[in-house]
Amino acid sequence: LMLDEAQAIKNAETKRSQAAMNLMAKFKMITTGTPIENHLGELWNLFRFINPGLLGSRKKFNEQFANPIEQKGDITKRLALKKLIQPFILRRMKSQVLDELPAKTEIVLEVVQNDEEMAMYEAIRQQALEKLSKKSANQTGQRYIQILAEIMRLRRACCHPRLVLPESQISSSKLTLIGEVLEELLGNKHKALIFSQFVGHLSIV
C-alpha cells in the first residue's frame, strides 16, 4: 500500500487520517515533500501509518521528543529522533534525480495596475480597514481571521477585478500581460502551463 502526497494524513484528528490508519496491508510506503509543516506531531502520525509503535504513543512521543525539541531546542533529542527514523527515510533532492533537465530560469515580470484597478483596489482596502476597525479587542481570534480574509480579497483583486466583483467591466492588467507573453511563446512554437492559486482566475484566463 502506497500513499502519495502523504502530508494529507498528517493531522491525526481528521477523518481522512483516521480512515488511512484503518487500511490493512503487509507493506506500507508513503511519499511526501513536506513530512513536517507545522510541528513534530505530524511526523509522529505519518510513522504511525507506516511503522506503528516505532515512535511510541503520542503522549510518550511528545514527552520524549516533541516537547524537548520544539520548546527547549534540545539538540540531543533531535539527533536521537533523527537516528531513530533515518533507516526508514529515503530522501532525494531534485539535483540528484533530474540531471537531464536544464537549470530553471526564473523571470519576474512586474505588472502595473491601470487607473481603474488602482481605484478599485483602494476602495476595497478602505472597506477592509473599516470592517477591521469595528472588531473589539475581545475578538482577537475573529479579528485575525478577518485580517487574513481581507488580505486574500486584496490578492484576488490584484489578479482580476472579477474575482471580487463578478460583474465588473474593469480590464485586468495581469491578464493583458499574460496574453502578451502567451502570444510570444506560442508564436515561437513553445508550450505553456499556467498556474494560479485561485481556480476562478484560471477559468477567466
Rank of each mutant, 00 (worst) to 15 (best):
186 L>M: 04
183 E>M: 12
68 P>D: 08
51 N>S: 14
93 M>S: 15
93 M>A: 13
163 L>T: 02
2 M>D: 00
117 E>W: 04
2 M>N: 06
137 A>N: 08
125 R>D: 10
140 T>S: 11
3 L>N: 01
200 G>T: 01
66 A>I: 04
76 T>G: 15
158 C>E: 04
79 L>S: 14
37 E>K: 06
36 I>A: 03
27 F>D: 13
62 N>R: 13
5 E>Y: 01
87 P>L: 02
95 S>Q: 13
146 Q>S: 10
17 S>P: 07
6 A>D: 00
86 Q>M: 07
199 V>L: 10
65 F>S: 00
44 W>A: 01
129 L>K: 14
70 E>V: 08
31 T>H: 06
34 T>W: 04
192 A>G: 04
22 N>Q: 15
62 N>F: 02
118 M>Q: 15
122 E>Q: 11
133 S>W: 00
128 A>C: 03
199 V>N: 10
101 L>F: 13
137 A>T: 08
7 Q>V: 00
139 Q>K: 11
49 F>D: 03
117 E>F: 08
5 E>L: 01
189 K>T: 08
75 I>P: 02
192 A>T: 08
49 F>E: 03
178 I>H: 00
37 E>P: 04
31 T>Y: 05
185 L>G: 02
204 I>L: 11
131 K>F: 09
58 R>A: 11
63 E>V: 13
